[in-house]
Design a protein around this nucleic acid. Sequence first.
DNA 1: TTGTAGGCGTTATCAC
DNA 2: GTGATAACGCCTACAA
Lengths: 343, 343
Amino acid sequence: MKKTITIHDIARMANVSSATVSRVLSNSTYPVSAAKREKILRIAQEVNYIPNLLGKQLKTNTSMSLGVIIPSITNPFYSSVILGIEEIARENQYQVLLCNSHHDPKLEIDYLQTIFEKQVKGLIISSISLDTKLLKSFIDMGLNVIALDQKIDAEGVCQIEFDYLKGGYMATSHLIARGHKKIGYVTAPLNRPSRISIHQGYLNAMQEHGLEPMVRVSEHEHVYDGIYEFDNGKRLTRELLDLPERPTAIFACNDMTAFGVINELANDGIQVPEDMSVIGFDGIEFGKMTTPPLTTIKQPDYEMGRLACKILLEMLGGGRKSELDMVLQPKLVERRSVARLGK
Amino acid sequence: MKKTITIHDIARMANVSSATVSRVLSNSTYPVSAAKREKILRIAQEVNYIPNLLGKQLKTNTSMSLGVIIPSITNPFYSSVILGIEEIARENQYQVLLCNSHHDPKLEIDYLQTIFEKQVKGLIISSISLDTKLLKSFIDMGLNVIALDQKIDAEGVCQIEFDYLKGGYMATSHLIARGHKKIGYVTAPLNRPSRISIHQGYLNAMQEHGLEPMVRVSEHEHVYDGIYEFDNGKRLTRELLDLPERPTAIFACNDMTAFGVINELANDGIQVPEDMSVIGFDGIEFGKMTTPPLTTIKQPDYEMGRLACKILLEMLGGGRKSELDMVLQPKLVERRSVARLGK
DNA sequence: TTGTAGGCGTTATCAC
DNA sequence: GTGATAACGCCTACAA
């Protein structure tokens, strides 16, 4: 294993001081004679010099890394978010430290701590459980944080939220506009702000049209997991089908759940959208690949990641320190799982 | 913004030397009197001391980070791999630096360089394009690398491969065992070892039973992307359906492509598995959620990630430096997209 | 334009 | 047990 080469080695070989080498090799604007510059560059090349960023970072007190804490990377919504984050980070020479919290508050805290110890100055986090006191203390010590998707009630964090209420309202209104009156809503437990809002949006739309809500909520979840959502969709749909008066359309709190709905319907020989309309929520890529493709409410995942990272980098650059909050808007994506009633 | 506190500050406050503080706070086994230890711990607690890992890492020449370079996190296969990696990493106090290469050789090199400059000593990479000379030089300088899924021809890298040939053979044999004789194979371009192997496995099985291959290959891909695969599946299925003699079963080179196959069939009113059997390859989670659930060949993604990380950590721990290569085995996952012919 | 020297925060080697 | 002190590799006043 080769010995690693430092600027001092190069300085010796080039008969200059390590300061000069540093100035050349760190692309500083500091003036260095063309001859020496060229010589240093040549030697660095020859000996295959690799800078040790730890030294630089210790000195300058910057780690070119960003922390990202999300529940789970296998959730396609979050993997798109990360893709967006990482893309912007890369363009700015930053790298991403990935942390899957699994919604575990203890893990979140551990990650937060380690990240900060590594002198990471920027964090994007989607959390519902984080101790805001702790977060606040890190912010006081210079951490810049962006709360994604899930609101965090702490001063100084920039919020990028999503209008779940409007999304729920939009989905329901779409079904109503298509002539549906008996519209079922199936949802995971109402134990998160986002879920509560979607549900409320549904209720608002129904009430506005004098329609009777038909809601089915699954019991408390233990693990967050795609198959869990899928099974929820199946089970709750079963309940809806067993009703004396079945709905003509089902709205699911997320796309995975909607896949479960469609599956259960298919098992019963019920055609979508001919016999039953289905609408989801999230707009994950896989919705395009189901049969039929899923009509849904799009939450801009990839764009959300890009935006979050851009803002974070601005904050790091000393730009806007001001609290900037924003609410991203839902968008209806019409595919083929919703039919006009009585067509 | 508060001033950050160092061990020297604590040393001053406790009337001890910074060496003693370091010994206590870094959990060294070095003997320190109980009284001082207790005092130092108390003060550190009071002033909310946060160690600066950059200092430690510079001194000890270790960054507790691992690099992971994969094509794209939005590919569910890779997101499962990453989940596995990150889990094991976390259990060992390591963190993951995530890099999406999009199969771009230039990006891969950039990432590799940066990672190494950050003094990362362990890398897990899935690449088909990496310059092995460069990689070799990093290995010589102390980088430990594990090639995942895609073989890298460089001395000193540990390979964790997957038996694609056997997988392709298994899928085809399964269809044959179910009574199918006219079996179509649809695939993305045969420009990667893995794809070539699956294809070959198919050919082997067909030949072994004296069956005539029916292969459809899509033209060169530009972007790697789920929808691209899906569309491939649709288009190639179309070709198969337009044949004078249609197949009774279709084998797709991956699950996303298989979803496209199923979709195109459904658009034609062809029922799966009643009118046509379909089998995929990968075993991603979503295969459980389609209608019908997709029979497929499982490639152990999550377990692969865990295994890779475990081995990497062993290498880092100075354990096995020996070249250890392994080939993970495929597994048939029977769900409901394959029917026995003439049942 | 160049070099000297000090320091970033930590650990490790020595003496005591 | 404990404390100076010297690194680790780099940057950056400041002086020349």
